[in-house]
Amino acid sequence: MTTIKIAHMYPREMNIYGDTGNLVVLMKRLEWRGLAAEAVAVGMGDKLPADADIVLGGGGQDAAQGDIGEDFITRSADLRSMADDGVVMLAICGAYQLLGREFRTQTGRVIQGAGVLDIETQGSATRLIGNHAVDSEWGQLVGYENHSGLTRLGPGVRALATTASGRGNNGEDDTEGAV
């Protein structure tokens, strides 16, 4: 049986809202489908497994994103190559922002991203919080949002979904996520 390898990015640094729970749920869902899974924690300076089937990353405060920013940048070419090869990436909050071109904090600090996605995020004083339901080509996705980053999609990316409730990427254009 093939084992699905999940590269869990920065589980200590980027787990502000218990995003490791996404790993637990993902592994359980794979198990229910009779699929074996292995999680590999990838912290600062650790090798990113080139044979990962899924890259998973969670949320972190602006300071945490700054702390891992340079390390994340060293992975840019590998992450872009993996995305080009069809590796699935589930990036939440700060990890999502760092897959983009850049994240500008509320204070104006610029944290460069990996450039995997054609997105930019601007920190805001307003938090977008609440239950969230979105419509995607895979059906309705539900979850919870809690972020102050306002993400704008560039022409080189399409939205993962449109938001029916909640505020999505930026609270203005009815988009959520990016593909």
Results as ranks from 00 to 15, higher is better:
Asp85Arg: 15
Arg109His: 11
Ala91Asn: 08
Ser124Cys: 08
Gly171Thr: 04
Ile119Leu: 04
Gln97Val: 00
Ile111Thr: 13
Pro155Val: 01
Gly18Ser: 00
Glu13Leu: 05
Glu31Val: 03
Ala91Met: 08
Ala91Lys: 05
Gly123Gln: 07
Met82Trp: 12
Ser165Asp: 12
Leu26Ser: 07
Ala64His: 13
Ala133His: 14
Val110Gly: 03
His8Ala: 02
Val142Met: 12
Arg127Met: 03
Tyr96Phe: 15
Ala41Phe: 01
Ala114Leu: 02
Pro155Ile: 00
Ala161Glu: 07
Met27Ser: 09
Thr105Gln: 06
Arg101Asn: 14
Gly123Asp: 04
Thr74Cys: 03
Asp135Trp: 06
Glu172Tyr: 13
Leu141Lys: 12
Glu38Arg: 13
Gly149Ala: 04
Thr20Phe: 07
Ala83Pro: 14
Asp51Asn: 14
Thr74Gly: 09
Gln106Arg: 15
Gly59Tyr: 00
Asn170Val: 00
Val55Ala: 00
Leu160Gln: 13
Met89Pro: 14
Met14Arg: 10
Val142Glu: 15
Ser76Asp: 12
Asp71Lys: 09
Val142Cys: 13
Met9Phe: 08
Asp78Ala: 11
Phe103Ser: 09
Pro155Met: 01
Asn146Pro: 14
Gly60Tyr: 05
Gly66Gln: 08
Leu23Asp: 04
Thr105Tyr: 11
Ala161Ser: 09
Gly18Lys: 10
Gly171Met: 08
Val142Gly: 10
Tyr96Cys: 05
Gly59Lys: 10
Val25Phe: 03
Val142Asn: 15
Val142Arg: 14
Ser148Thr: 06
Leu90Tyr: 12
Asn22Asp: 04
Pro49Asn: 05
Thr126Tyr: 11
Thr3Pro: 11
Ala64Asp: 15
Gln106Phe: 07
Asp71Gly: 01
Glu137Ala: 10
Val40Arg: 00
Val157Trp: 02
Arg167Glu: 11
Ala161Leu: 00
Thr163Leu: 02
Arg80Met: 07
Ala41Glu: 04
Arg33Lys: 06
Ala64Thr: 13
Ala7Pro: 13
Ala36Phe: 06
Glu137Asp: 12
Gly166Val: 02
Leu98Cys: 04
Thr105Pro: 15
Lys28Cys: 01
